[in-house]
């Protein structure tokens, strides 16, 4: 044998370090006590290592959430980086848990870590997955609801990446509106 050639396997750095959070609904605890940081990563390879290690979205118990946020931003409205912002919200019908949820969530994660929103990537705070009996939700959170150019660019790119047809619309809601009204009354600030 001529001996083995060892290759240095370099990892591919991401633009941002990301934190994955898990929320498990336990009514005996406060909302914040139910929120757990799983881990942080800042390379493509570490992302996949994590992704393959955790439950797929469709296998989570209803009431659970995953959140992926930039390091330093907590997955809640109250965070300074989120409080003036809002979210592009994708609501799924019950049956889509088995057909679309895992695909949509992975696509959302890839948009974030790959910086698909280009020059408006700085507007991105994170993304949230809610697994719920009445229908699952995925949302991309941005930092400034009044930044029309950034918000609409992100919405268009995101909708295209999910492969949604023109017949489907998704709406952007400011967190201040979501917090002050019951959810089904929250008006969309933008629609794509």
């Amino acid at each position: 044998a001529k001996g083995l050639v060892f290759e240095m396997v370099e990892k591919h750095p991401l633009q941002n370090r990301w934190a994955l959070w898990f929320f498990k609904n336990d009514k005996s605890k406060t909302w914040q006590a139910n929120l757990h940081l799983i881990t942080k990563f800042d390379t493509v390879e570490d992302f996949w290592g994590l992704y393959h290690h955790i439950q797929p979205a469709s296998k989570l118990t209803p009431g659970c959430d995953y959140s992926l946020f930039k390091d330093g931003i907590e997955p809640m409205w109250e965070d300074d980086q989120n409080k003036r912002g809002g979210r592009w919200l994708v609501t799924l019908a019950k049956q889509q848990r088995h057909t679309d949820l895992d695909h949509f969530w992975l696509e959302t994660l890839l948009c974030l870590i790959g910086e698909s929103f280009e020059r408006f990537g700085g507007d991105i705070c994170g993304a949230v997955l809610n697994v719920r009996a009445k229908g699952d939700k995925i949302a991309v959170w941005t930092c400034e609801a009044d930044n029309r150019d950034g918000v609409t660019h992100i919405g268009r790119v995101y909708k295209e990446r999910l492969g949604l047809t023109q017949k489907v619309t998704i709406g952007y809601q400011a967190h201040t509106d979501t917090a002050s009204k019951s959810h089904n009354l929250t008006k969309n600030k933008f629609v794509v």
Partner: peptide
């Protein structure tokens, strides 16, 4: 500065690497 951008195809190829 420059932003490190990875397209979907590249990220998926990394998934399949050993």
């Amino acid at each position: 500065g420059t932003r490190i951008i990875y397209d979907r195809k590249f990220l998926m190829e990394c998934r399949n690497s050993p």
